[in-house]
Design a protein around this nucleic acid. Structure first.
Lengths: 102, 102
DNA sequence: TCCATATATCGAAATATCTCGATATTCATC
DNA sequence: GATGAATATCGAGATATTTCGATATATGGA
């Protein structure tokens, strides 16, 4: 958990929005039947929702992953991204500890 | 309290460090006798501690102020900056609300 | 009024980020 | 092994940030 990378990754409204969307799978189209049991959302769905180019969204997800805010799992030709809830909490605690006075 | 500006202001290790230093007045040289009753730290002291140019530090403090993380008070030729604890808490709450899942 | 001090603002060069289209890689299917 | 689909990586132009020195502004004192 790198607070430096995490803040940089969060310093962009669309990346923050993606993290919010990923809170709820129902923000995206239903998974394909063969993916019904898998967690996370594929890049294509995120791209469609964000309205940015494929390469930009892939890059964004890479930044979020490098920051530890999401995890990636490959299944066939798809990469499924989902929030890393534990690390997000670690980050929030770290920011709170750094910013709070006492 | 603008979460957008605040994250941008915090996306810099020295600005975050300045906010930490400002938690405790004793991180800086003692105030001049005529300022003994005033809150906050003047730009010169912050500059000295940060080891950056005067214009850079003035710019940094302006960014932190615009983000609502500090307040500025002019007294004579000095500007005294101090943390805006209330807004910092508001910011922390906002980030928590935006990032936390539930 | 003139000068020194503290801070703010300006202009610019170096670097980083954003965002894209093009290309490469990976994997499933025929 | 050729093809198509999903994703990653590359290279580049546009824009933003960093940081500085120089200059402007404000204030207090001789």
């Amino acid at each position: 958990m790198d607070i430096e990378n995490a803040i940089a990754a969060l310093n962009n409204p669309i990346r923050r929005r993606i993290l919010e969307w990923l809170k709820d799978r129902s923000n995206f189209p239903p998974a394909l039947p063969e993916h019904a049991d898998l967690e996370g959302v594929c890049v294509g769905y995120i791209q469609e929702k964000a309205g940015l180019s494929q390469s930009t969204v892939s890059n964004y997800m890479g930044l979020l992953k490098q920051a530890g805010l999401v995890t990636a799992e490959r299944h066939g030709q798809w990469t499924f991204y989902r929030r890393n809830e534990a690390n997000i909490q670690v980050f929030l605690k770290a920011v709170q500890d750094e910013l709070s006075k006492t």
